[in-house]
Design a protein around this nucleic acid. Structure first.
Lengths: 213, 213
DNA sequence: TAGATTGTTAATCGATTAACAATC
DNA sequence: TAGATTGTTAATCGATTAACAATC
């Protein structure tokens, strides 16, 4: 078994959730011209301990250098490969309300490799309307687009009551990951992944933080 | 010391992050006319164990009933009080890009008590433009609005390089909680709270989930 | 070289789960 | 009443932190 196969076998969820933050940090540092970063410095900017950083990075196929730390460019590349964001990922967006339209128009995600190839909505009044460079399509078109463009991720921004049936349609069509922007809890088969965006939940968490002072 | 004071003394972060999900579930169930819900049923719909649910709910000032479970209406109210979302919370939004505009237009947050009272941007070209019922204001107006309207939460959707200075301005003006929609890691004094919305991080987490199948 | 920093093992800490008496 | 379900204690599990030999 190759070393890569070993390291990529299974990374704990707690670590996977931090890897995107290291990636963002490595990107920012490299863009600023910083070539090396230590576990301690990463820890300080991210509010972690240097121990946690070194433990986490031991899961990716990349080595630091004694006395110098981690090469920002090398770290960025290795993290992108580990997460699977070293190539474009095709996405569709279902639900062309305000939140959905914003995500379709927010080109930062596209720049980071998440390419939206279609925007869908069930409301006849919305179908055919333009959202940036997209024309909103009806739900009947969804399965075809997912199959033809090998869409990997579905972004769900419909009313919460509609979220589960939309998730089912996306999964049936062949999508393997769902970004859930609704407050519904989605049930999917074990071979698919769901990540909840938790925007309202974050505001509520913040309300608790603000209250107890 | 009153029982309420004891229970509200300090709820672990892991629990606080789940409370909004119970609240959402309780709201949905009550709206559907369901009056009682057991810890097992909550656990099943949220992908948890009934033990975790009972442990979590023991932190709030609300009792279940043997053999019947929890009253959905009672649970909803107690969770709202615990989180501090049983009354309106005033927010400002800084950064009127696509994401920011969407949040300002997305009235679901307003319906859930998060009232936006101002939208700000530093770009002269954007200041004065309309975003729904708001007129975008310049950053010089920010501190005044925060003070006059007793704004509690600032929502930051500016480019990541600008996020920390904006956070500093918001905190200085008196805001006590920040919802961070950028990829920057924000440093704030201990008496303030930050919650990261992690939208790009969620997509990256999903990329990892999608890759390993 | 001396010293800074990694990678990794072992210890600690906290979160989750199991178990069960209390109870309606 | 009998049985379902809570609230809580104790056990387990996993994540974080500390420590330190290896190393450049």
């Amino acid at each position: 078994m190759e070393p890569d196969a070993i390291t990529s076998l299974k990374i704990p969820g707690s670590v996977v959730r931090r890897l995107p933050r290291y990636l963002t940090q490595a990107q920012h540092l490299r863009q600023e011209g910083v070539e090396w970063v230590s576990s301690l410095s990463l820890a300080e900017t991210l509010g972690l301990t240097s121990s946690t950083v070194r433990q986490d990075l031991s899961h990716i196929d990349f080595q630091g250098v004694s006395k110098r730390g981690y090469s920002t460019a090398g770290l960025e590349g290795a993290l992108a490969r580990t997460l699977g964001v070293d190539h474009d990922i095709t996405c569709v967006l279902v639900g062309a309300g305000n939140l959905g339209r914003a995500l379709a128009l927010h080109d930062e995600f596209g720049r980071q490799g998440f390419k939206i190839v279609g925007v869908f909505d069930s409301a006849p009044a919305v179908v055919g309307k333009k959202v940036g460079r997209f024309t909103v399509q009806g739900m009947t078109e969804l399965a075809g687009v997912v199959r033809e463009q090998k869409v990997e991720i579905g972004i769900i921004s419909v009313p919460h009551e509609a979220a589960q049936p939309v998730a089912d349609q996306l999964i049936t069509a062949g999508v393997r990951g769902l970004l859930n922007l609704t407050t519904a809890h989605l049930l999917v088969p074990a071979e698919a992944s769901v990540v909840d965006a938790r925007v309202l939940a974050s505001l509520r968490e913040l309300a608790y933080g603000v209250k107890r002072r």
